[in-house]
Amino acid sequence: MSKVKVYASNSQINVMSAREILAKAEINYHEINKMDTAYAGILGGDIEFHVAEADAEKALEALVSLK
Rank of each mutant, 00 (worst) to 15 (best):
A18T: 05
E57H: 04
D55K: 04
S17I: 08
A18M: 07
G45V: 02
V6Q: 05
G44H: 12
N28A: 12
K3C: 03
Y7M: 08
A8Y: 01
M1S: 09
K67L: 13
G45D: 00
H30D: 11
G44W: 13
E61F: 05
G45I: 01
N10M: 13
G45C: 01
M16N: 15
A23Q: 15
V15W: 00
L66P: 02
I21D: 02
E61S: 11
I47F: 01
G41K: 07
I32W: 05
M16F: 07
E61L: 14
M1N: 08
N10K: 14
I21H: 03
K24A: 11
Q12W: 10
A18W: 04
S65I: 12
S65M: 09
S17R: 15
K5C: 07
A56Y: 01
Q12A: 13
E61G: 08
K67W: 14
S2L: 09
D55T: 01
S17M: 15
V15L: 07
S65D: 07
I32A: 09
A54G: 01
V15M: 10
E20P: 02
Q12Y: 07
E61V: 11
D36H: 11
A23P: 00
A40M: 14
H30V: 11
Y39A: 12
V6T: 04
K58Y: 03
I27A: 00
A52C: 02
N28T: 13
S17D: 11
K5H: 04
K24F: 02
N28Y: 08
I21Q: 03
K34D: 10
F49M: 01
G41C: 01
V64E: 15
L43H: 11
A8E: 09
I32E: 14
Q12N: 12
E48M: 03
G45R: 06
A18E: 00
V51H: 00
A18R: 01
